[in-house]
Design a protein around this nucleic acid. Sequence first.
DNA 1: ACAAAGCATTGAACAAGTTCAACAAAATTC
DNA 2: GAATTTTGTTGAACTTGTTCAATGCTTTGT
Lengths: 192, 192
Amino acid sequence: MIESLKENIAKHISISNKELDDFCRLFKIRSVKKKDHLLREGEVCNFEGFVSNGLFRIYHVDYNGFEQILYFATTDWWITDIDSFTNEKPSMLSIEALEDSEVCLISKSDKDFAYEHYPKIERLFRIMTQKTHVSLQRRMIDNLSKTADERYLDFIDKYPHHKRLSNRLIAGYLGISHEFVSKIRKKLSQGK
Amino acid sequence: MIESLKENIAKHISISNKELDDFCRLFKIRSVKKKDHLLREGEVCNFEGFVSNGLFRIYHVDYNGFEQILYFATTDWWITDIDSFTNEKPSMLSIEALEDSEVCLISKSDKDFAYEHYPKIERLFRIMTQKTHVSLQRRMIDNLSKTADERYLDFIDKYPHHKRLSNRLIAGYLGISHEFVSKIRKKLSQGK
DNA sequence: ACAAAGCATTGAACAAGTTCAACAAAATTC
DNA sequence: GAATTTTGTTGAACTTGTTCAATGCTTTGT
């Protein structure tokens, strides 16, 4: 639904209805089945997307074959590999639907067109990039200073959608083994 | 020196000399003595800065009293707490000079003025924020998947300025104890 | 040049997290 | 709805990194 995209944009910047309509017309809606990939490592990411419904994981497979999850994108989040998208180079990341989902996608040329014609849009993306930057910074600090137990609790606390995620996915996000997630849960459910 | 600021900006965007001059006139030069703080946790960060000479650490003191170093900013880097600066709220971060240094500083109102009058500047900061975002993302993945030894080697490898840093500072960046840095060094110098 | 403070190194005991293997419980598939 | 695959749980042995304490080495300030 394009409506939720409009709402999301209006939350970040002030923009006229006309401009908002024009910009949103550049997006194409796409349904993605559970387990389908929007992007695979090695491909060039040719879209920036807004999740109008569903759930995705953005992840990287490390040299040991472990899947490190950078973040989960649920309804109302944006997804892309900025590096690959803006510099048109092969992606280190993959994006997979964890549930049947729907996204609004914009191509690089259409986004560049928007940057040239609607200065507000340049601001929109500056602000959004800043926000994700701030939260990444905070996560970086937390990862450096907190134990796995604390990070697990923080995660559960901060992301209501954790209930839709398996232990293995949570482990991939926290950077620990799934067995250890299991042990943390046990410890918490017992003596707390 | 304002010249190095101009060069740095020209590296990121194409901009007329006139606009570049006008924008750079908004900066004030400031010398900072070794061990002086440009920003202390709890203060609102009222500047964005470009390091024209010297070396800084940007860090956070965690709830155990440990200093987590987010990054080092040497000559040609930008420094600020974006969150505090843009949202005018108390900072979680501190910024300290590790050597006698010189920075070019711009205030929030002057930067907002620039955003309104020079659209190129909005682009400059979008691009810079994107770049730091990409490198933070990569560091996040590395921290999740690599051991301390590997991260130490990566760091030494990637940052030529590591020679100006004590073990304790490197430890603060890698998120490990300074004793362990010492042990890693020993291991590397011996059997490799 | 000296004292004081901070920095680096090392070892021993400990804590946090991994790995492997075995089994139970859900969820998918045909 | 039975069979197959994926997910979760638990224990034992192991690896990685921490903590604390002792010692010597550099800086720094005066």
